[in-house]
Design a protein around this nucleic acid. Structure first.
Length: 721
DNA sequence: AGCAGAGTAGTTTTT
DNA sequence: CTACTCTGCT
């Protein structure tokens, strides 16, 4: 048997990870060490050498993107259709299980997936019904709380309430009512998918046994990101019957704040004591100096599993550090640098600008725009997250499944058809009393003549729209149904009449939705409508279509995980911003910030440029943040400060917080000359040692008489004297 | 139903 | 500073 195509071109550690015959294997895969490659090759190895049929493999990822990529690569490698392979996200796989075993899971056959938007609506409804003060207990917080409990594998009954803990007891009350409402409406939120399929394993041993027999190998990607319920799910499924390979990197665990438990790596080693450990430490992405910088930073974390990236590549250039005067200057410097990068014959798409929080993108965008540099911002609203799309989908959900109260509430009066808050409250009350769905409640109240006036006609209209669409769904195509939906519902017309470009864009999105459905295909025997609705709920799609233009990539450090770029900028690397002020207190959170820094640094292939601003306007206030501790953790020999156009020497940094030296009003005060005596209202007199530029961008270095040196932007209220 | 003005919060994000 | 939410008025 020729297995060379599986193991050729792998390094020793990679080959060991691919071919390891032990049932349990933990692969600690550093950034850029060929993690996905190992995962895919190991799957191929199982099929080719261990004779595992494609249907006997289960590969679990966190994002749909990762699942897609893995599927693609295995197809290319094995030259087989990937149909039989179970590759998917935790949620996708859980959903698939619940769909097959809805009865055993105590769900209606047509149960729907509730996304976080609809989840919030349901939480709000519950809180209003229970008359809980929304000012004291924000629904958002309740939603987050409930999701966290589910991530921890806890139902309302499992939560311990301490006497006097008003918060917890209120939350439990909401949780319990929310669960009841979801169950009644056949709705399952993201956390519930996992929780319930975990319970399915526990309550139906014969089902568990069936899958344990079926799966002959389980592989998990990004294992450091698993939360409690995901780990429990895996643990029960694998127990000691199914070989389980997990791949992860404790140094890249950056989602602790949403429930991910790095400790699951150690837990895995405890639960599966025979597990073999393979470390992938050779990095194929970055230069030696960049890796040294990354290692230097992450070395400051305690309790790491221990792993040091190395490369046999070139040293490369040291990391650059640019001290900007303010966030404008920072953005301009980045844009300038990109311009010369492009002038040197490189692509804009090879550059990424990474930042800690989304709010930072604005100034960067403005600079890029001013310089005419095309860019693309990642993150933001994805296609299926857009209001207009979700509204259109809510119609389809009702067509598919009348009991979907979340969908009913969402669109019963959208576009407005005279069903106001009062009528809705009546409907809800009746539904609650009779334990029936909103849909049924509407029907019965109409039949009983309990609706009148505008509400009556509006509701009748709404019900008949859904009924008519249902008739169409029986025999028509999916895109025909969608077209009919946006027309008949009045959604299209409604958005078209919205003023401004907003409405225009929404109509375009709706048309795009219809358009996307013309090519939508599903396997035979599967109901296309229900498949499509489920897919839309579980995969929100990309925020923007692939752009073909060569453009600079802007994103948060979090969303950069897994990506790589020849030239990387890390902007706003300041105490308070990165590490974020919210993470300064707890050591655990600080370590997560540090891992984020590690992720950022290891995105760079050839060149990394770190920038920070000595003065930054944030929330309308001027802040003087110190350089981030993470920069100070980079070994001195792999970092180099950028001198300002070789003319101004950056003086010793003297941080004097709370003293605003700058004000736009005095921008006219510029044109300083060497040796000129200046006066600062707070710091006294000094001498201009250097200056360049004019207006806003005049940079001057002042040696104050008290010995402090300052580098300032000359829109400071300095007065010549 | 729709708008204007007040008020307020303000990391990171996937499913 | 800004973007979003809520309230109260027409």
């Amino acid at each position: 048997m020729d297995v060379s195509y599986i193991i050729d071109g792998l390094n020793d550690a990679q080959r060991e990870a691919v071919t390891e015959q032990s049932d349990h294997l933990l692969v600690l895969a550093g950034a850029g060490s060929g993690k996905t490659r190992v995962l895919v090759h190991r799957m191929a190895w199982q099929m080719q050498v261990n004779r595992v049929p494609a249907t006997g493999l289960l590969a679990v990822t966190f994002t749909n993107k990762a699942a897609k990529e893995m599927r693609h690569r295995i197809e290319g490698m094995m030259n087989i259709p990937s149909r039989g392979l179970w590759i998917g996200t935790f949620h996708g796989i859980a959903h698939r299980l619940l769909r097959s075993h809805w009865k055993d899971a105590n769900l209606p056959e047509n149960f729907q997936v509730l996304d976080s938007d609809d989840q919030l609506r349901m939480v709000k409804r519950v809180m209003r019904e229970a008359q809980i003060d929304e000012a004291q207990f924000p629904p958002k917080q309740a939603q987050w709380w409930i999701s966290s409990q589910k991530d921890e594998g806890l139902r309302a009954d499992n939560i311990q309430e301490n006497p006097g803990d008003h918060f917890t007891s209120t939350m439990v009350r909401v949780y319990r009512q929310y669960e009841k409402l979801c169950q009644q409406s056949g709705l399952v939120d993201f956390g519930e998918l996992l929780l319930r399929s975990h319970e399915l394993w526990l309550h139906r041993p014969e089902l568990l046994a069936h899958y344990q027999q079926r799966f002959q190998h389980i592989l998990v990607d990004e294992f450091q990101d698993t939360n409690t319920i995901q780990y429990a799910w895996l643990q029960v499924l694998a127990s000691n019957r199914v070989p389980l390979t997990v791949v992860g990197d404790d140094d890249q665990s950056i989602y602790g704040w949403r429930g991910a438990k790095v400790e699951n790596i150690q837990q895995y080693q405890r639960d599966f004591p025979n597990a073999r450990l393979v470390k992938l430490e050779q990095n194929y992405r970055s230069t030696k100096l960049i890796l040294k910088a990354a290692n230097g930073v992450i070395d400051n974390n305690q309790g790491r599993l221990g792993k040091e990236l190395w490369s046999d590549g070139v040293d490369g250039e040291p990391v650059s550090l640019y001290a900007a005067f303010n966030e404008q200057d920072e953005a301009n410097y980045i844009a300038d640098t990109i311009t010369s990068w492009v002038q040197d014959g490189n692509l804009r798409a090879e550059c990424a600008i990474l930042y800690r929080s989304n709010a930072q993108s604005r100034v960067l965008e403005e600079s890029l725009m001013r310089q005419g540099i095309p860019y693309r911002v990642y993150g933001g609203l994805r296609f299926y997250d857009r209001q207009e799309i979700r509204n259109a989908l809510a119609y389809l959900r009702l067509v598919h499944y009348r009991r979907d109260d979340a969908a009913f509430e969402r669109v019963v009066n959208l576009p407005p058809r005279g069903i106001g808050a009062k009528s809705l409250a009546d409907l809800r009350q009746y539904a609650g009393e009779q334990s029936i769905s909103m849909w049924e409640s509407a029907q019965r109240m109409l039949d009983a003549g309990q609706m009148k006036g505008r509400a009556k006609t509006g509701l009748q209209k709404f019900l008949s729209i859904i009924e008519e669409l249902s008739a169409l769904a029986e025999h028509g195509t999916l895109h025909g149904l969608m077209q009919q939906t946006i027309d008949d519902s009045g959604l299209k017309e409604y958005h078209a009449s919205e003023k401004g470009e907003k409405g225009q864009g929404r109509v375009e999105n709706l048309e795009e939705l219809v358009n996307a459905l013309t090519t939508y295909e599903v396997e035979e025997g599967i109901d296309p409508l229900s498949e499509f609705i489920a897919q839309a709920a579980l995969d929100a799609g990309e925020a923007q279509a692939e752009d073909h233009e060569d453009s600079v990539q802007l994103m948060t450090l979090h969303s950069a995980k897994g990506l790589e770029f020849p030239l990387v900028f890390m902007a706003g690397v300041e105490e308070g911003l990165f590490p974020h002020s919210m993470s300064l207190e707890e050591p655990g959170r600080m370590e997560e910030e540090r891992r984020l820094a590690y992720v950022g640094i290891t995105r760079a292939m050839k060149k990394l440029i770190i920038t920070y601003a000595e003065s930054r306007r944030l929330y309308g206030q001027e802040k003087f943040n110190a350089l981030s501790r993470f920069v100070r953790e980079i070994p001195g020999d792999c970092i180099q400060e950028v001198r300002l156009r070789n003319t101004v020497t950056r003086p010793a940094m003297v941080a004097r917080p709370n003293e605003s030296m700058f004000s736009q009003e005095s921008a006219k005060q510029s044109g300083f000359s060497l040796g000129q005596r200046v006066m600062h209202p707070k710091f006294g007199e000094g001498t201009v040692m250097n200056s360049e530029g004019s207006g806003h961008h005049t940079r001057i270095q002042v040696n104050f008489d008290d010995g402090a040196k300052w580098l300032v932007l000359a829109y400071a209220p300095l007065e010549a004297c």
